[in-house]
Design a protein around this nucleic acid. Structure first.
Lengths: 238, 238
DNA sequence: GCACGACTCTATGTATACAATTGAGCCAAC
DNA sequence: GTTGGCTCAATTGTATACATAGAGTCGTGC
């Protein structure tokens, strides 16, 4: 592994874990001392993490850990939903290949099996993985590099990812109901795409992202769910 | 001006002008020789231009000039329209401040005056400027850092900008009609936002972006319009 | 004659020395 | 007492030397 990649991963971990606090300025030399790499890969990592949205550039030079409000998270989820809605509509309008349809149907079936049973802690990671895969396949079905790239950027923020708040559900009583609703939306959007119903596919993906809105609100209410949200350390209460 | 910024601007110019051809690999040392800066700012510039979408990383290291198909441009415009639609909807739902409304109305009025008369070559730059300003104000009215940032990235591609194809209109007979339609859309979207009509505002901004679609098609048909499109050198015919 | 391997050369990845700018702290003058 | 400016330190911006990996070519062996 390259030193740059190592630095990116280490810094990201430090930021998301809250060890580096929002607003805190990052000195290149301090990182050099901490991680044992030279300034060059550190600079590369800082550039990348700023692009990713975890850091913000200070006008006079250097970077600080970015902080987010509850509204920012809401908007990030809404943005992802909007772009995934665009992807779903394009997929419906353009008509994906039989191979792509078979693939996403297979993914849907595996999710069905998982959701049928009560989901335990150990099967949750399997759910997260399949859920991510579903969203990736859907984006792929739009058949557009440009759209895919834009969505990649939108989900780079840890709490904007399709699976960001899934783990929160594990500790909530409404867990099972939410999963069933989400899975129904998965099924419906695939159906809409197959039938070339663009508007329906778009509306469904938008609404689907709002499951995350709801989970966010619940996570903020339940103190014991806080730790389960990735990047919760970056959230500053208004 | 910093060496990094100088390098970014120079490289961008070289790419957009077509001096560096799509698919061409960029050697750091070659750029050093060409621009007279050291490798460090060159590396910074390459990272930034990759983020911007003008370059793509080569798996084995280094960067190459990215090339785009007509479909890529279409998708980039559609993506911008979708995100600007989101911004317009949020602006309508949240209700912008009186100051923001006054500002965008002022912008609208200036555009009205400009559009009333036949637009000559020298007033075109004023139109482009006001048009950019209108779009920026609209994004600002959504009141979301996250959405604004995402839109910034979407319009970074030269042909995705709201003003990308405006200059094309200068050489087209339909020019005036298109400008009048675009201005009507500007007016309507502001009205919709003021009335808190979110769905209407969103639909209008989406449709507004499709003016660029039309201009793209016309630009591709008319050979003499080619040079007026920024980044046309990056387009590879399928 | 073809294919495989080794070697060389060139490219990027990394480390570090040096330059320049910003920001803070202190002193002095009004 | 406050404000202005100056100096010094610390941090980022820049240049460059060195390490390393990859690609291309030449030679040899089958």
């Amino acid at each position: 592994m390259s030193q740059s990649l190592k630095t990116i991963l280490s810094l990201r971990e430090l930021i998301l874990s809250g060890e580096l606090k929002p607003g805190e300025r990052l000195s290149e030399l301090a990182i050099v001392d901490r991680l044992g790499v030279s300034r060059t890969p550190v600079r590369t990592a800082l550039l990348r993490l700023e692009e990713e949205g975890l850091l913000e550039a200070i006008p006079s030079g250097g970077y600080a850990v970015r902080h987010f409000s509850e509204a920012d998270i809401f908007d990030a989820i809404e943005t992802r939903g909007t772009l995934e809605g665009l992807a779903a509509r394009l997929a419906a309008e353009r008509g994906p290949s039989p191979g792509q349809i078979a693939e996403i149907r297979g993914c849907l079936r595996k999710l069905d099996i998982l959701v049928q049973h009560e989901i335990a802690t150990d099967t949750f990671s399997a759910y997260v993985e399949l859920n991510e895969r579903f969203h990736q396949l859907l984006v792929g079905m739009a058949g557009s590099r440009v759209v895919a790239r834009q969505i990649e950027r939108a989900v780079a923020l840890p709490f904007a990812s399709p699976s960001a708040f899934v783990e929160v559900q594990a500790v909530l009583p409404e867990s099972r109901a939410i999963l069933l609703v989400a899975q129904e939306q998965h099924r419906s959007v695939v159906e809409a795409i197959e039938r070339r119903e663009g508007a329906r596919a778009e509306a469904l993906m938008r609404e689907h992202s709002r499951v995350a809105h709801r989970n966010l609100v619940m996570a903020l209410e339940h103190q014991n769910a806080h730790d389960l949200v990735p990047g919760m350390a970056l959230i500053r209460q208004a």
